[in-house]
Nucleic acid binder design. Structure first.
Lengths: 138, 138
DNA sequence: GTAGCTGCAAACTCTTTGCAACTCT
DNA sequence: AGAGTTGCAAAGAGTTTGCAGCTAC
């Protein structure tokens, strides 16, 4: 039983066949799959799964903080299994998402919020770039 | 003739009645209005304006870099007239958007991208917080 | 005159939901 | 047994678009 499954059981979720498949897909994902991605991969394992179930399951897992929902500027959402805090750099040419972490940045953003008179509840930072040496001036 | 109007003329846009109204609304906006906000304010001036025109005009202005489109985590877009580079802190209790600018942050984010092997094309940073002193632990 | 712009309504995309049937526990 | 879960299809929200008529230049 995977860690994700265990934590779902702890939360009192019924471990249905569909959920097992979706959890397996998420556990094996090494990228930041969209709902459609998860749906496609899940259907390859059990073709009876509906996209409504995928939406419902991902929302549930997000609420339980077992996965993280991202809304990059693409018009749809992507998910990733919860992991250490980090940010994303989106490769504008390939769509690839590179993760990074930076302590200086963490401290700075706390300081900025504090200086503005706020307690930081959440934040998001996304960089959009092109591989160095590949960009051509328009 | 407002600066926005001038720059539209330069870009070869026809200055129709509807556009004048939308540009006026944008010029007077001191917040970060949604499409519906712009539509509502424009309709108050000329009730014949359609929301399709608002969408089309805002897209155009965004392409011309006369305004900036933001997609906070709200499910719809907001716009603001182009101004100095800055970031946003969204007050989670009121929806209010506070702008800020931080040179240290700008330098840091350039450095991060460079270290990852990327040229930074765009980025976004949003902070979500509550006014200090108002938060209660759950 | 005509390329560009507009309003309208229909279409589209992503996501959510009502409901009856089904299934873990 | 029964609360939770599912698939389906319909509905929603936000946004885009085809088209025929209109208008700034």
């Amino acid at each position: 039983m995977s860690e994700l499954e265990e934590r779902c059981a702890e939360a009192g979720l019924k471990m249905t066949g569909q959920r097992k498949v979706i959890l397996q897909v998420l556990g094996e994902a090494e990228d930041h799959p969209s709902v459609e991605d998860v749906y496609g991969r899940a259907k390859a394992i059990d073709s009876s799964i509906s996209i409504a179930t995928v939406y419902r399951t991902l929302s549930l897992l997000d609420e339980l903080d077992l996965i993280v929902k991202h809304e990059f500027q693409e018009g749809y959402s992507r998910y990733e299994v919860n992991s250490d805090h980090h940010h994303h750099l989106v490769d504008l040419e390939t769509g690839e998402v590179v993760e990074f972490q930076n302590d200086e940045l963490e401290a700075l953003k706390e300081k900025i919020a504090r200086d503005l008179g706020y307690d930081l509840v959440d934040h998001r930072l996304e960089l959009y770039g092109k591989k160095t040496g590949k960009n051509k001036k328009k």
